[in-house]
Design a protein around this nucleic acid. Structure first.
Length: 909
DNA sequence: GCAAGGTC
């Protein structure tokens, strides 16, 4: 770039009007800056003269508003019935400027024609780079000779902007490619699954949530579904929770000064007897000896500078504002100049930011003005340079006030609240942390350790301005090591574990942030979409529950074994995009790979659509239109409800069954041997079974799973006449599973969710249709799993363990909650099967309890996995707080010193 | 009538 020469026209394009204005003001130093309208009313054109490396330039500075183009399928694939949704994985796509962006395009067309250079001032992230190429495409189309240059800047600060324009670079194709790939994948997956599940389910079920079901769309998207997944997963976790009683010892001590509450350092025990024994020891020797007194200064730090997600989370927590409303109000405050750009990941201020000036602006405020004054007074020592949270999007600063206001007349309550939050948060960030003095005291009572702590606030500092947070103080008496005293109260108290709460909006945003679902600018959109699509609801406490529709969809895909509702898919895509953006992988390679996998997944989901239909049928009535869609091959008429047909189905785990189509109203089912690898309904009819016709099924068994003498191919009948099938069911068992706990059993709704009409299964063979009392497998001789290997005494009640086949013995519980209640427990050392006797009559098939949680016979797996469940902290291992076994003590049940009562094998007999 | 990402 040689200096001097003729003046050239330079078209500068920013991502949004505010950036165009700011850059123009900085570069022109407000000297000779002219403004005129373009074709779009929002996107003004600024004009000024400037020299780039000595080259005199007439600068035209304008903007777009985000993406200029949209990706969509070519016209002939746009109509929903125009093609098979599977075709959308290779249907041609194109980028076009949508109608509402045409006026911006016209401005660019007109201005680009008369310019020699195009300088791109888009945000310096991947999306910005992609928008840069959209602008290039539009401008180059009207002017092939344009010289293309990219300005790289990380903040709208004088030095940064001048430096950027003097050091122009090339646009980064890799960054733009990564976004192209993301757009295409999102479009193809979203459109194919949305069309598929909408067309599959909408007319088959009476979905009552929609007011007008002609417009009902059951959308699928790689961000909205994982977001729904978080809500459903937590909901299932709550459903699966079984309260457990626990016991804890509380100790208080009152002195002249105050009262101290000492917490048991074991936390709590689930074994009542163990707790009682320890409690009795404490009662017998109640003298407490102080073993430790620790005094510490504790600091409570102010929050990091405000990013979008934190703004949304805090507005939700402090004001119960929805993230959508927060962003709407923040946008308005930004547009009118009161706060900085509200979509930012950055949570640290640049060292060049003039923080003092920002604080000075606030000193006239009637409420927090005096705090601002104290901050500015070096004598108070209140000022502290803010620390950062380590995030920087290199495009925008943290959200902070940009203009003083003591409240505008047109502001709504939410405007007032949000502006106040932004200002107080900012003032807190540049303040000293609160200081407290904490005292922790540990005492020993009969070998048991207890602790208590107190806190005195020494300096509130930032808490004076950040009224949304508090830090409680509490006073306890003074203690000295070796001091002894007698408790004021010493009690054994019970409590129960509680399930975790439903996800709040702040929780949901955290989950999304952690899993990389959405961006700061779109997270609230995804949450809103779930509400708009009737997939979830939000209560007055900002907590989310899935609707029947949302739960059914997730359940359907879960039953298929797919994690389409989990965040992994998005994370993988994000990883691939990163690879494209740094040149490790090509766009074509990532697209081909991802789309091939997703198409296979789509085709597979379509084969297994019966899972979605079954899940929907749990919650919704079938509509008349469904008559034509049999979800399987008909085997016979149902002999139970006499209304519907029995059809052959394959489960997620690959096992076959024949079930009534009226499920869940009718739960008649015949489970087939677990060794079946293939099953096809034939047109052959059984000659002996009634009422007919009963169509024969061509089975293929896995060779290594059936005994010698049986053929791998078998033309069988499920009507009851088939001896071979009956024997194989006895030998190999069936593929049926214990229905997972925690879903569909407890919530009520006006939809069909039939927990109480569940047909009970026989505990021996797990078939429905008969009870355990008349199970045919009980009389069929030597192949019975439970007839061998027994060492039961005669007359002792037993059942076979449905987990491992070893006989279970009947025992009597001796815990506080269940004293006297009988239960079966498996005799095998390797198996943890457990079943309450009275549950047998409820159709429960028992459960296995994890090793090492001896006092926890009731926890059910459920669908909820991972994450914390409420309350269960300490296990019941009988060791002291230091980890040493309590010396000299023995199991109180059997006297054996090698273990304690909680691990005693004889406990409860 | 589908996605998610920009932004007004």
């Amino acid at each position: 770039m040689a200096g001097g020469g003729r003046t050239i026209n330079v078209l500068n394009v920013a991502e949004k009007p505010s950036v165009a204005k700011a850059v123009a003001a900085i570069l022109s130093r407000n000297q000779g800056l002219r403004v005129r309208d373009g074709r779009s009313r929002y996107n003004k054109i600024f004009e000024f003269d400037y020299a780039i490396r000595g080259q005199p330039c007439h600068m035209l500075m304008t903007s777009v508003t985000g993406h200029l183009m949209e990706l969509d399928f070519e016209d002939r694939y746009r109509k929903w019935h125009s093609c098979d949704p599977a075709d959308l994985y290779q249907a041609p796509v194109r980028k076009i400027v949508p109608e509402d962006k045409m006026d911006i395009k016209r401005t660019l067309d007109e201005e680009a024609r008369r310019c020699q250079w195009l300088v791109l001032w888009l945000d310096c992230d991947r999306e910005g780079e992609n928008i840069a190429f959209e602008v290039i495409e539009v401008c180059r189309a009207v002017n092939h000779h344009l010289v293309l240059r990219r300005a790289r800047f990380s903040a709208l600060i004088d030095r940064e902007i001048h430096q950027a324009v003097q050091n122009l670079v090339d646009p980064n194709q890799w960054f733009a490619d990564a976004v192209d790939a993301r757009q295409e994948i999102d479009l193809r997956i979203g459109a194919s699954f949305t069309r598929f599940q909408t067309m599959l389910l909408k007319d088959r079920f009476c979905i009552d949530s929609a007011t007008d079901d002609r417009n009902l769309v059951l959308s699928y998207g790689p961000c909205q579904f994982p977001t729904l997944g978080f809500i459903v997963e937590r909901y299932w976790e709550i459903q699966a929770h079984e309260p457990e009683e626990f016991w804890t010892i509380n100790f208080t001590h009152r002195s002249d000064e105050s009262i101290a509450t000492f917490n048991w350092m074991r936390g709590h025990l689930f074994d009542y007897t163990c707790a009682v024994i320890i409690y009795e020891m404490c009662v017998q020797e109640p003298t407490a000896t102080v073993t430790k007194v620790r005094q510490q200064e504790k600091l409570k730090y102010p929050p990091y500078p405000l990013s979008t997600i934190e703004l949304e989370k805090r507005a939700s927590r402090f004001f119960r504002m929805s993230s959508e409303q927060t962003m709407k109000v923040a946008e308005d405050l930004y547009q009118s100049g009161f706060i900085s750009y509200p979509r930012t990941e950055t949570d640290c201020f640049s060292v060049r930011t003039d923080l003092h000036a920002m604080v000075q602006e606030q000193q006239g405020h009637p409420v927090w003005g005096s705090y601002a004054l104290r901050l500015l007074d070096p004598g108070t020592g209140l000022w502290r340079n803010p620390s950062g949270g380590g995030h920087d999007d290199k495009a925008h600063p943290p959200i902070h006030p940009t203009k003083f206001s003591s409240g505008e007349s047109r502001w709504s309550q939410d405007h007032h609240r949000l502006y106040e939050l932004v200002v107080r948060h900012f003032l807190a960030c540049v303040s000293q942390p609160a200081v407290g003095a904490e005292t922790t005291v540990e005492i020993d009572v009969a070998g048991e350790l207890f602790s208590a702590s107190g806190r005195v606030i020494l300096a509130r500092n930032y808490l004076d301005v950040y009224r949304f947070e508090s830090w409680g103080g509490s006073v306890i008496p003074s203690y000295a090591v070796g001091q002894q005293f007698i408790p004021t109260t010493l009690t054994l108290d019970s409590g129960v574990t509680r399930p975790p709460p439903l996800l709040s909006e702040a929780d949901l945003l955290s989950c999304m942030d952690k899993a990389g679902i959405g961006t700061d600018a779109t997270m609230h959109d995804h949450i809103k979409k779930l509400l708009d699509r009737f997939y979830a609801t939000k209560d007055a406490n900002t907590r989310f529950s899935p609707t029947n529709l949302g739960e059914a969809l997730v359940m359907g895909y879960d039953d298929m074994g797919y994690e389409l509702w989990k965040p992994n898919l998005r994370s993988t895509m994000e990883y691939d995009m990163k690879e494209v953006s740094i040149g490790n992988k090509s766009k074509a390679e990532v697209l081909a790979n991802c789309l091939q996998q997703m198409k296979a997944c789509f085709l597979d989901a379509r084969v297994n659509k019966v899972k979605l239909l079954e899940a929907m049928a749990i919650f919704f009535e079938r509509s008349n239109a469904d008559e034509h869609h049999a979800a399987g091959e008909i085997v016979r008429q149902c002999g139970n409800c006499l209304e519907s047909n029995m059809v052959l189905r394959k489960n997620r785990d690959g096992n076959f069954m024949v079930g009534c189509m009226a499920f869940p109203q009718c739960r008649n089912a015949v489970w087939l041997p677990g060794s079946v690898s293939e099953a096809i309904v034939t047109s052959n009819i059984c000659n002996s079974c009634n009422p007919g016709p009963v169509y024969l099924i061509q089975f293929k068994f896995r060779r290594h799973e059936i005994p010698p003498g049986f053929d791998v191919n078998h033309l069988g009948c499920i009507g009851g006449c088939d001896e071979t099938l009956r024997q194989l069911i006895e030998i190999c068992g069936t593929g049926s599973r214990n229905p997972a706990g925690g879903r569909g059993a407890t919530t009520t709704s006006n939809n069909v969710r039939q927990s109480d009409t569940r047909q009970r299964a026989c505990i021996y063979c797990q078939q429905t249709g008969h009870s355990s009392g008349d199970c045919p497998s009980q009389f069929s001789g030597s192949r019975n799993a439970h007839s061998h290997g027994t060492n039961l005494q005669s007359g002792e009640s037993s059942i076979p363990c449905t987990s491992c086949g070893t006989p279970c013995v009947l025992r009597t519980a001796n815990t506080a909650n269940n004293r006297g209640r009988k239960f079966y427990s498996c005799q095998s050392q390797e198996c943890n099967f457990f079943l309450w006797e009275d549950d047998i009559n409820n159709g429960t098939r028992g459960r296995s309890i994890p090793r090492g949680s001896a006092s926890n016979p009731g926890r059910r797996g459920g669908r909820g996995r991972g994450g914390q469940t409420g309350g269960r902290g300490a296990d019941t291992t009988f060791v002291s707080a230091t980890g040493d076994p309590l010396s000299g003590r023995r199991c109180y049940v059997c006297g054996d010193p090698s273990h304690f009562a909680n691990a005693c094998p004889n406990r409860g007999t």
